Structure formats: structure tokens, C-alpha cells
Simulated assay, not measured.
Amino acid sequence: MYSKMVVDINCDVGEGVENEHLLMPYISSCNIACGGHFGDVNSIDKTIQLAIKNKVKIGAHPSFPDKENFGRLLMQISNEDLKKSIQNQLDLFLERLFLVDEKLHHIKPHGALYNAIIVDEKLAILFIDVIKPYLNDTYLYVPYNSVVEKVALKNNIKIKYEAFADRNYNNDLTLVSRKEKKALITNPISVFEHVYKIISEQKVTTIFNVEKEFKADTYCIHGDNLNALKVLKFLKEEFLKKEISIG
């Protein structure tokens, strides 16, 4: 079937769920944990191999160095320690990629670090300064209309706008806190409706039922979402009906 549109679906992987072999056939790019919130040489290598096998674009997923809280809590850490940690994570990841002659397609920060640089200019500048040397023809995944987007563009960094397919948004386009009941979208039909509205109208409906302008080049499904596989299968089926392919 001829597809009028191609959509990138990304997934956070290499995080200990051990479902990557099931998810990879349904996604087109992946974000592999590289030791901050989860991950070591073995998990990185295993996930890279699965991505290569499934022809999935490979990204690094750096985080606060906080395995205890899975990188999902804002961490009190000095600027120097944070810089060193992110550098160590990316150095390790690029070393593993080099050994299999693969290139880094993108970088996507994880969890609390991702959420912080959306709104905190000083932290966004720090993050961009650290990762800039690693971005040779490489993309940075960022949220639409965020602080980190603006800092990245000022530094001539190539970006792709990311939307979360399985998360709800507040009116200011920040993510609804995972502490709230409606933070996650687990029903496959609801995920599709959420994503298709962004694709077709460039708008998102917030948790307060307000429509906001929104743009996305890539859509994330969290690998630790219990319904991740069901959601991905359903998305693929519904996309086909709309002549949309994943790639």
C-alpha cells in the first residue's frame, strides 16, 4: 500500500524490562539507557544488537545518575558532577556503538532530566553545552515550545520535536506528573486518538480538555508501559488504515 505519510515511533529501551525483542519490530527509533538511570555494557550491547537486527535508529538516553529512583526524581547534584555523569554515559554508549560500526542517530534525555530542561534555562544550557560535542550530524529529541528547544536552536543543533503517545499533557504542555492518576495513557484506542490528533491537526488535547497547538516529528511509547506491545500493534493497524507507515 502506498503511504502518504511516514511517522517515527520511538521507544525507551534497555531499561531492564526485557521486552525489547517484542517491541523493536513495531518502532523506528529507540532510546537506549546508558548507565544513568539504568544500563551497563551488557544491556547496552544487547539492545544495540536488537536495534540493528530490526533496522531501528539508535539513540542514547542519558539521565541523572540515579538508579535508585530510575532517574525520575529531580536530583540535587553539582553542575560538574552532572556534566561528568552525562559525559561518562555518552562516552560509554559511543564506545559500544563504535565496536559494531554504528552511528548515533539521536540523543534523548530521560525522566526528571528531560522534564527539568523543558523549563529550566540554566540546566538546559548546561545540558546542551555537555552534549554539543557528541552531536555530529546527530539529532536531539526535544518537546515542542520548550526552553531546551530554544537553547538547542541557538546552538545550531538539529532537533526533532517529540510527543509522548502514552502520556497526558498539562495546559502549559508539560507532562502530567506520574504521581497523578491520569498521567499515563494505557488504552490503545486512546493512545491512537491522542497521536492522530497531533498528526492530523497539529494540536493536543490537554488533561483539562483544552486544545493546544503542538508539533511532533517523533512519538514516544515507553517500553515499561505494561500495555506497550498492545499499543504498538494497535497503532500500526490503525496507521495502515490511514495510509501512514512507521519509519
Rank of each mutant, 00 (worst) to 15 (best):
L104R: 13
K83V: 05
K84Q: 14
L94A: 03
V56R: 11
I107R: 06
F98Q: 10
S63D: 10
S85N: 10
D91F: 08
S63W: 03
L97V: 04
I86Y: 03
S63Q: 05
K83H: 02
M75I: 08
I107T: 12
L82A: 05
D81S: 15
H110Q: 02
L82S: 04
K84D: 10
K67L: 09
L90K: 10
E95G: 00
Q87W: 01
K53L: 12
L97D: 05
F70R: 02
Q89C: 03
P62T: 12
K57S: 11
N54G: 04
E68I: 14
D91G: 01
D91I: 07
V100A: 00
Q76Y: 01
E80F: 09
I58L: 11
K55I: 00
L99S: 12
L74D: 03
F64G: 06
S78M: 09
S85Y: 04
Q76N: 15
E102Q: 15
H61T: 05
K108N: 03
H106K: 09
I86W: 03
M75A: 02
I77K: 04
N54M: 02
L90R: 08
D101K: 15
S63P: 09
K57T: 03
L113V: 03
E80A: 02
L82D: 07
F93E: 01
L90G: 13
L113M: 10
I86M: 00
K57H: 10
D81H: 14
S85L: 01
H110E: 01
V56L: 12
K55E: 13
L92C: 14
L99M: 14
R72K: 15
Q87R: 14
E68D: 12
L90M: 13
L97S: 09
M75D: 00
L113S: 02
F93D: 05
G71C: 09
N88F: 11
K57E: 06
R72Y: 01
L104N: 14
K83Q: 15
P65S: 05
L90F: 11
N88R: 10
D66A: 09
F93V: 05
